[in-house]
Design a protein around this nucleic acid. Sequence first.
DNA 1: AGTTATGTATAAGAATCTTATGTATATTTG
DNA 2: CAAATATACATAAGATTCTTATACATAACT
Lengths: 118, 118
Amino acid sequence: MPRNDKKMKNSQLYKGSLNTIIMKLLEENGKMYGYEITQKVKAITQGELNITEGALYPALHKLEAEGLLDVEIEKVDNRMRKYYKLTEKGTTETVNRLSELEDFIRNMQSLVNPKLEF
Amino acid sequence: MPRNDKKMKNSQLYKGSLNTIIMKLLEENGKMYGYEITQKVKAITQGELNITEGALYPALHKLEAEGLLDVEIEKVDNRMRKYYKLTEKGTTETVNRLSELEDFIRNMQSLVNPKLEF
DNA sequence: AGTTATGTATAAGAATCTTATGTATATTTG
DNA sequence: CAAATATACATAAGATTCTTATACATAACT
């Protein structure tokens, strides 16, 4: 009963990156459901990043409301799953977001590792 | 009179990274004042990241309140400058923050560029 | 004389996230 | 078999960080 889950301690740095992560995973995997996304992220980052439901589900709903995702409900093993996939608009937008992410990472590296400027 | 400044359009991705940026710049430059930080960041990122005063000054005040920064006021050219520098605690914490940033960047790259996993 | 640059500051509101719940079924474990 | 864990979605309250809009003040440029 005690929802005693592991305290996450995700660095503040991840703030703002959730939408990009979701969209990239969907671009790569075609369709995914929420819980699957949390597990995938945990696996890829070797447990370093745990998406919380309180962040994930509102984010999915918002992306859907913005027309970037489509949803499709399935019942598997008597349990509900909501599969999300990118719309056409979402696919286009994903390209932009990934480009922004590259710029962001490049800029952060310039700020933090000025010796590497060339 | 109209503070008609350029609209910044900073990507959401930068959210959460300002403290790390400030601390790294101070570690590198010894002491800096707020306006100087905004100009330095703009220069290093070639105009791509513009720190707004509304974000910067509260962040500096908070870091000071947390004991990570010390402040020293100077009057230059009849204008006030508040120079900030890392405290001992701040220097230690900067190491942690930079380490977190490296982890963050590595994790984001794993998520976004899965082919590079090895 | 008016705009831009330099310099700091705060308040209102937006956006995103954490934490804490709530509901429900399936599976594993003591 | 009862309890805990895993699977699965959802929302609300509050924290944090940021944008936007001001405010004040001096210096320099046009």
